[in-house]
Design a binder for these strands. Structure first.
Lengths: 327, 327
DNA sequence: CTGTTAGCGCTTTCAG
DNA sequence: CTGAAAGCGCTAACAG
């Protein structure tokens, strides 16, 4: 930058202004400086810039099980940060115990302007670390029941699961099973189970452990779950899977076993991943606006950073039960 | 850091040493300093640190079509960077035209220690920008034909497609179709087409445009491709899809149409995504070590950064044709 | 609208 | 093994 200054005949601070706040500099000066910048192919050093003025970095932690849904979300976040002129510092890892704290420390080292986290921060130490740091935080998360550290964007997994279960009841299914995946202390997943159970209870349907099973979040988990639940007595006639990946495999397994879907067993998923409408039969599922969620999270964070938004907000996104052929 | 120094009775530089090169400080001093660090919950400012010594940031650009394969790769990269003590600055976007250059500039502003790029850099301006900057670069890419800017980790898409096509010929399929997706100037994809054609030519099989089709990389593209190719004359008895996502949808569409797989038409995929072995019939596909690729890329980059590795290397990873039921 | 001065928080260099 | 001085490249604050 000193060199640009020398070559253009202005002071370094004028170069700085021409680049970061062009409106504070006369047109002629700006043009001359930008010309030299282009000539030298100069890229300003953000590291140095971030020493005095706040850094334009958004820090984020992404869960280790990257499925298509999370990928969509990251895309939304990335697009929104680019639009707002922020860069994206990413750590992938489970927000659990000391790993959570370690990840947060690593990110804090870069003095980011804000955080987007994929779930509510659990450990006390981590919460303290973040609140002491003072930057805005948007949590993309289950919005039922808990108070965000700062701001939350998300939806109620309870409601989504409740809605799907009610849909299945209204369709006339008598005995509805539910397949969950290990919650890893993440309450989105347990909220889905609770929504399912609450819907059955409200409609006075029987339910109990014999209608539920927990399997790993892999396609193979879906295969296991279907076989396990189909052997239960009395017979289950519909199964709600808490992920489309599981439902995908379950539909395949049904073909293999010669079971008709939805005739012998109806299958519903969660997420509306891109393949859902191409399955045979097409998958009935809960549509979650993942991309939108990521985008909104970053936009909300930027408003917080700019001071255009007060903390404490909880922004709820819409979802939909998408009726297709499988249930 | 000044405060730590004051409280512990040492000079700031000693605190710095206790944190970054503990071996240069006596045990008693170190213990005392670390005690105060913990007490104050101090997180060193990497931004400041990166002004004098090289930053521990790895910059990366991820393609906009984030599928499961790319997600696996990002996971591999992230794990390896964490292990090596680097942070991950991520831009999502197509490496095309001016967007490529813009993304690279944004990353350069952070003076990263190195780059991991998902394909060979195309525009001359971008290549210059990167070579002038001087940091090591690992390209995860098609390794056939082109010279990396610095170092490459990847495999030959030509060879993988050649291998799968040969496998299908050896299985006795007579007329083998191929489904590609728009290459976006990305030669991985065009290499797959070339490998397919070369295998047919080497075995003296007829081939021509009537056996090929290009569709968008979405599940729906698979549905379209299957129907289009099945209506071609003479009849096609096997189809090689250049992505598992396409093959997934094609298998579903075959069920819908009542076509037996592989009896009426064999279906092969590319990628061995997690659902491949749960499909009905299980998908024959090309297994690519995506996670490994990401991990190796970062490990290789770190070796380059540390000077343990000279530039110019091309590291080839293994692949496998996985025989299952669909072809 | 442009310039001077000082300083962000750390680490390199050179001395003790 | 520890410390003093200087400076990384930029921008806030305060002139002019």
């Amino acid at each position: 930058m000193r060199e640009i200054a020398a070559r253009s005949g202005f002071a370094p601070i004028t170069v700085s202004r021409a680049l970061s706040s062009p409106e504070k500099v006369s047109k002629e000066t700006r043009d001359r400086i930008l010309e030299v910048v282009r000539e030298l192919n100069f890229v300003p050093n953000n590291v140095a810039g971030s020493m005095r003025s706040p850094s334009r970095i958004i820090a984020t932690i992404v869960p280790p099980i990257i499925n298509l849904g999370i990928a969509e979300q990251v895309k939304g976040m990335s697009d929104a940060s680019q639009a707002a002129g922020y860069q994206f510092l990413l750590v992938q890892g489970e927000l659990t115990g000391t790993a959570e704290e370690k990840a947060i420390r690593a990110l804090l080292g870069w003095r980011p302007a804000g955080f987007v986290l994929q779930a509510f921060v659990k450990s006390k130490a981590s919460r303290e670390l973040l609140t002491n740091y003072g930057a805005p935080i948007v949590e993309i998360s289950e919005i039922r029941g808990r108070q965000p550290i700062d701001t939350a964007v998300g939806l109620s997994n309870f409601e989504t699961a409740y809605a799907m279960t009610t849909y299945l009841i209204d369709k006339g299914y008598k005995r509805i099973g539910f397949v969950n995946v290990p919650a890893h202390g993440n309450d989105r997943l347990s909220q889905r189970g609770q929504g399912y159970r609450a819907a059955l209870a409200d409609r006075r349907r029987k339910h109990g452990p014999s209608q539920e099973i927990e399997v790993p979040l892999t396609p193979h988990g879906g295969t296991l779950a279907l076989n396990a639940l189909m052997s239960r007595k009395p017979a289950i006639d519909a199964i709600f899977f808490s992920s489309d990946s599981l439902a995908l495999a379950a539909i395949q397994e049904a073909h293999r076993q010669g079971w008709d879907v939805p005739g012998d067993v109806a299958i519903a998923g969660y997420g509306d991943l891109d393949f859902a409408q191409e399955l045979y039969p097409r998958l009935t599922t809960v549509q979650i606006p993942r991309y939108e969620m990521g985008k909104r999270a970053v936009e909300t964070l930027v408003s917080r950073i700019d001071g255009r938004l007060a903390p404490g907000g909880i922004f709820k996104l819409d979802f939909a039960v998408v009726e297709r052929e499988s249930a």
